[in-house]
């Protein structure tokens, strides 16, 4: 475990925990895309299938449980909670996310580390995570308002991805034959998706103006 990976896991944890706490506290999910949250729940469910069959470390198991619990709780709040669900902007959150799921599944069947159910699902979760933020970014473009809840959420997610890339560079140089092309390519694609958001987020923060995404 290197510092980049630990920092990456912590910012990832922060993004989901902050989001869940804020939704729970202000009883509102305005500006948050349910589609992205559902995609993330699928990502974790598909990736952590080996939760009980393959013990890596206590840290690994605890973090997997926290990610599963928080992502499913967020979806539950946005779909089922009597107050929160009314604040969900379903008219604007219309990105057809199954358009993302199918290609990821097909790609996972074609490109995986081993053609077993668990490895295909793992690859599927890696590809799906790379595009899971799409509905959220589309929603931001549509509603053009980025309140700090959403801004922080996307910012932490982007930071987690950047830190993971640093982690892979570190591991590549310190561990023999540490090569994971699938995670690396998907991870870089995912980080690029955040790049433009990062640019506008930092610019708005620097000029101390409200964050506006270009049309």
């Amino acid at each position: 475990m290197n510092v980049f990976r630990l920092a990456g896991d912590m910012t990832h944890l922060l993004s989901v925990v902050v989001l869940l706490l804020k939704i729970h506290t202000i009883k509102s999910c305005a500006g948050i895309s349910l589609k992205t949250q559902e995609l993330y729940a699928v990502v974790f469910a598909a990736r952590y299938l080996d939760l009980f069959v393959h013990f890596v470390s206590l840290y690994n198991t605890v973090m997997k449980l926290v990610f599963l619990a928080s992502s499913f709780s967020i979806v539950w709040y946005m779909k089922r909670h009597k107050i929160v669900r009314r604040t969900y902007d379903k008219d604007h959150d219309t990105f057809r996310h199954y358009v993302l799921v199918l290609p990821c599944l097909l790609l996972a069947l074609l490109i995986n580390e081993k053609f077993t159910f668990r490895e295909v699902m793992w690859a599927f979760s890696i590809y799906l995570e790379a595009v899971a933020i799409f509905p959220q970014l589309v929603l931001l473009q549509r509603t053009r308002n980025i309140d700090n809840l959403t801004g922080q959420y996307v910012f932490f997610l982007g930071a987690y991805r950047v830190l993971y890339i640093l982690n892979w560079i570190y591991r590549y140089f310190t561990e023999p034959h540490f090569v994971h092309w699938i995670s690396w390519v998907a991870g870089i694609v995912q980080t690029l998706l955040y790049a433009d958001f990062f640019y506008y987020y930092i610019m708005s923060w620097k000029n101390n103006v409200k964050l506006e995404l270009p049309a």
Binding site: R47, D50, H54, V56, M63, K64, E113, N167, F178
Partner: peptide, 10 residues
């Protein structure tokens, strides 16, 4: 080794 192949990252 098998360790290197397994997915030890979240």
């Amino acid at each position: 080794t098998d360790k290197a192949k397994t997915h030890d990252e979240l």
